[in-house]
């Protein structure tokens, strides 16, 4: 019978059980790596490095997980913070690179081979809208949970999701008419 996250977390905390932690990693690796791949704009190597850092940080700070939120929500928060710290270090936070920002705003500049690809359209969104869409629409988090992960007000999350959705629809419509 598969164990729930709470049972596995308890085993890690009480017995420092590496097998239980491995089970947690196995259960959540796909979602965490998927989120980071989208946030890093498909830089798979960087995303996997950040995912490793996420799980190691989760292990180190397991005692601070109080079970108020879902374990996956807590992991997403750590993953997002790892990504932000790395982006800050690399000075690659969206909004700093003007040429990248211009490309984001103009879906016409996209390679024709990538048009009609929803995931590519998603990568054209600015970080704050992309992360809100990824968490709420793709990973199924509530607006409230996403606000906790991103550490921003609930209203901002709702706005970002709304704007992101609008831009996605527009981008896909523009590509459709090409």
């Amino acid at each position: 019978m598969p164990l729930h996250d709470a049972d596995l977390v308890a085993r890690v905390l009480v017995d420092d059980d590496h097998h239980a932690f491995a089970e947690l990693v196995r259960n959540h690796q796909s979602a965490v790596r998927g989120l980071l791949r989208q946030l890093t704009r498909s830089d798979f190597a960087l995303a996997d490095d950040l995912a490793q850092e996420t799980f190691l940080r989760a292990y180190k700070n397991m005692q601070s997980f109080r079970g108020e939120a879902k374990f996956s929500t807590w992991l997403y928060r750590i993953a997002y913070n790892c990504f932000r710290e790395d982006a800050r270090k690399r000075k690659e936070l969206v909004g700093i690179d003007e040429s990248q920002l211009a490309a984001e705003q103009d879906p016409q500049t996209v390679d024709p081979a990538l048009k009609h690809d929803l995931m590519h359209a998603l990568q054209l969104l600015p970080l704050h809208e992309r992360s809100a869409i990824l968490l709420c629409c793709q990973n199924g988090l509530s607006h409230d949970e996403a606000a906790r992960v991103l550490d921003i007000p609930l209203g901002t999350v709702k706005t970002n999701v709304l704007r992101g959705r609008e831009k996605l629809k527009k981008t896909l419509a523009v590509w459709k008419t090409d």
Partner: peptide
């Protein structure tokens, strides 16, 4: 969006973390 989120195979990731 949900459909296009592929399952990522572990391929040694868990072992590397552990």
């Amino acid at each position: 969006l949900r459909e296009e989120m592929p399952y990522i195979d572990d391929e040694g990731f868990t072992a590397a973390v552990v």
